[in-house]
Simulated assay, not measured.
Amino acid sequence: MESVSREFVRASPRLDGMVVSAVGYRTRGERPGLHRGLPSPYLTLIFSLDGPVVTGPTPEQAGGRDADRTDIVLGGLHQSPAYVVRPEHEAGIQLAVHPLAARALLGVPAAELAGELVTPGAEVLGRRAADLRELLCEQGGWEERFASLTAYLRQRAASDASGGSVRPEVAEAWAWLARHQGTGTLRGLSRHVALSERRLTTLFRAETGLSPKQAGRLMRFQRARNAVVRPVAAGAAPDLARVAADCGYYDHSHLVRDFRQYTGASPSAWLAEECRNIQAGSYGGGEE
């Protein structure tokens, strides 16, 4: 039986905050199963360097004939986990893209990706993205791959033809939510950007696909998830009550409810599933 190996390599794309994190991954000898792709306040862009990424909104669909299969994955902002088939071996590069950079990097606002859990990336990015994936597969090392990917994204940003920019009120609303780590109120946010709550929600949803309240909840959950992961990566048990208090939840039960919505499991059950990947370095860094 092939021994299990996991490799996760992080890079820091110098793209003016448009890409929040970049991770190259390669695993071998895994027991086939399902992985939960969790909601986050960032878009997901994956270039598979192995076979297609197979996903579905439920475990049954991911494992069936109706599963989505694509070599380049684009994921919008969503409110429930995506189930990803974990094969015996896989490799790729996964980026967390700031949703307000979607126009510049992807050519569409993030809201256009919100209708489907996963969108085939070549349908949005075009033939050059498929050519880039072939190049990444041929290249021999992570540094070379990250350099090629960064050059491609810089060129897309420089030739942005999305036909419009993000409204300043929406950009400031996102920044305000991020500063408050998802715990601010819609009333306080609307006052800050000098728009009515209804108008702000309409503009924000048209750009991102989420309401400000939904985006704030994702930011808070992302912070809580990272706080839960850090002690596990160091070989310790997380203090969930402390995490809940630090991240602005009413209590431990409130944190558990969010975990159940966003992961489909309790915090302890999700950690048990992901413990080996966490300790191998697949989580954390660059996304807070």
Rank of each mutant, 00 (worst) to 15 (best):
F8V: 13
V97H: 01
S253W: 14
R128S: 11
V166L: 03
S211W: 09
A236F: 15
L135G: 07
A241I: 07
L117Y: 07
E207W: 05
A101M: 00
A194W: 12
A91T: 02
D258G: 12
S190H: 11
L49P: 08
A265R: 08
H35S: 15
E288N: 13
L34H: 01
V166I: 07
V4M: 14
A91D: 03
G17I: 10
V229I: 15
D239L: 04
P212W: 01
S21Q: 09
L186M: 13
L189A: 06
R154G: 12
G37Y: 06
G29R: 02
V228P: 04
P59C: 10
V170W: 11
F146R: 08
R225K: 14
E134S: 13
V193N: 11
L136Y: 06
N277E: 06
M219F: 10
C247D: 08
L49H: 00
D66P: 03
I46R: 09
T27Q: 07
R179K: 06
S159K: 15
P59D: 10
R260A: 15
A110T: 13
G216V: 10
S80Y: 12
R127C: 03
A104H: 11
P32E: 10
S80D: 09
A171D: 12
V232I: 15
S148K: 02
R31D: 03
D246P: 07
H98L: 00
A171T: 11
R145D: 10
G115W: 10
D131M: 12
R276M: 04
H78L: 11
A244W: 01
A122I: 10
G140L: 10
D68K: 08
I93E: 04
S12G: 05
A157K: 03
A151E: 05
D258A: 12
A241V: 10
I46F: 02
E116A: 15
L100Y: 08
R191C: 07
L38F: 08
G209H: 09
V19E: 02
L125F: 11
G235R: 06
A62F: 03
Q79M: 11
L15I: 14
L125E: 02
A130N: 01
S159D: 14
A151L: 12
V256D: 01
E90G: 12
A11L: 01
Q279C: 13
V256H: 04
A178F: 11
A22N: 03
E116T: 14
R276W: 05
L200N: 06
R260M: 11
S266C: 14
G184R: 00
R276D: 08
A104P: 08
L135Q: 15
Y42R: 06
E7V: 14
H254Q: 04
A241L: 07
R260P: 06
E88Y: 00
V124I: 14
A129W: 01
E169S: 15
E123W: 06
R10E: 07
A233N: 00
G24A: 14
L255N: 09
Q181W: 02
A237H: 08
E116G: 11
S253Q: 13
L255E: 06
H254N: 09
V193E: 07
E123L: 12
V243L: 08
E169I: 02
A215L: 06
D160E: 05
R230G: 05
G285Q: 08
G37T: 05
